[in-house]
Structure formats: C-alpha cells, structure tokens
Simulated scan of single mutants.
Amino acid sequence: MKHKMNIELSNETELALPAFINARIEEVVSAVLEQEGFDVDGEVSVLFTDNVGIQALNAEYRQKDTPTDVLSFPQYDDLYALSDMPVFLYLGDIVISLEQASQQAESFGHSLEREIFYLVVHSVLHLLGCDHMEETDKRIMREKEKSALKHLGIFK
C-alpha cells in the first residue's frame, strides 16, 4: 500500500500559485519518501513567504540575517537513525521564499514551478536528516535530488 502524505499549504504572499501546485507537492514529497525507503502516512507543512518573511526566520533560527530560498524545520533530528518508524509521521515544516525562488528560476532558466519542486525535494531530504555541510554529503544529497526529480519527470 502506498503511503499518503498530507500537505498543509499556506501562502502569505501576494503571488497566486496555480492550483496544481499543492497536489504536485504532495507527489514530490511522497516520491522522496519512497526513494528513501520511508513507507508511512504523514504530513508536512509548506509555507510560501517572501524575502522579508524568510529573512526574519533565517535570523531567528540560524542567526543569518539574510534572505534564503528555503528553510527546513525537521520534527526529528535524523529519521534514518530511528529504530521504530512511527505509523503516522509529521515530517516538519518547509518555508519557501517565492520571491527568491522566482529570482533563482529566472537565473537558472527554468519555470517557477520547477524551482519550487526542486526546493521541496531538497527540503524533504533535510527533514529526513540529510545535509550538505561536507563535500561527500553534498554529493550524496545532489544525487538524491537528481534521482527524485528524474523519477518525477521534472526537468525544466
């Protein structure tokens, strides 16, 4: 039985996103979980904000007083290390700056939707316990991101 991932989506920006974004985000989250071997029902919250909103969170939680594209707030330190997997898993929170994502999409030459989906993949990997502080970890995480995006058919 395939797991069901509920997405609590909030948008505090003036930018209206296409209606398919929520369903597609659910698919993206589920694909990353499946790829990583987590077959559980669960929930993740996704908040879309602007650069001012994400800068405030970045300053408060990471002591970096600058905007960023995405922040991840995992419920668990490292899901890979859990010996007993919960039946229902609250993964945590994802905060995406639509302003920053839009700028990055333009500079990379792809759609805003593609950038959002990449940021969700990246953030879910963080929620699971992956990081990219060391070069080896960065390579592993990038490969996982590429694999998930390819599986989902998300290219440009």
Rank of each mutant, 00 (worst) to 15 (best):
R114M: 12
V120W: 00
E8S: 14
S30N: 08
P74C: 04
R24G: 03
K156L: 09
I21P: 02
Q35Y: 09
H122W: 01
D50T: 11
E60H: 12
L15Y: 06
T13A: 07
E43H: 09
S72F: 01
L82Y: 00
I7N: 05
L47P: 00
N58L: 04
G153I: 13
L127H: 02
I94F: 03
G109W: 01
A16I: 10
E143Y: 08
V32I: 12
E106D: 09
D69N: 09
F117C: 00
N58P: 06
D69L: 14
A23I: 06
V70F: 01
F38M: 08
E12I: 14
K144F: 01
I140F: 04
E106F: 08
F38E: 03
N58T: 04
K144I: 02
P67T: 14
D50K: 12
E12D: 08
A16K: 13
E143F: 11
K144M: 04
V52S: 06
E36R: 14
F88Q: 11
K144A: 13
L71G: 11
E135Y: 15
V70D: 03
K138T: 12
G37L: 08
I21C: 09
V124E: 02
R142Q: 14
Q55F: 02
S147A: 15
D137F: 09
L79R: 09
L127M: 08
S147F: 05
R114T: 15
E36F: 01
V28D: 06
V40T: 11
S107C: 03
V32E: 01
I116H: 05
L128G: 04
L119V: 05
E8A: 12
V70I: 12
V87W: 07
L89V: 15
E60L: 15
S72D: 01
P67W: 14
E99R: 00
E36S: 11
V44L: 02
L125W: 07
V28C: 08
E99D: 15
Q103R: 15
D69A: 15
D84L: 10
I25H: 00
L152T: 10
T68G: 03
E8K: 14
V70K: 01
N51I: 07
P18G: 01
K4S: 06
I21K: 02
T49K: 07
G53K: 01
E26V: 05
V121D: 00
K150P: 00
L91T: 04
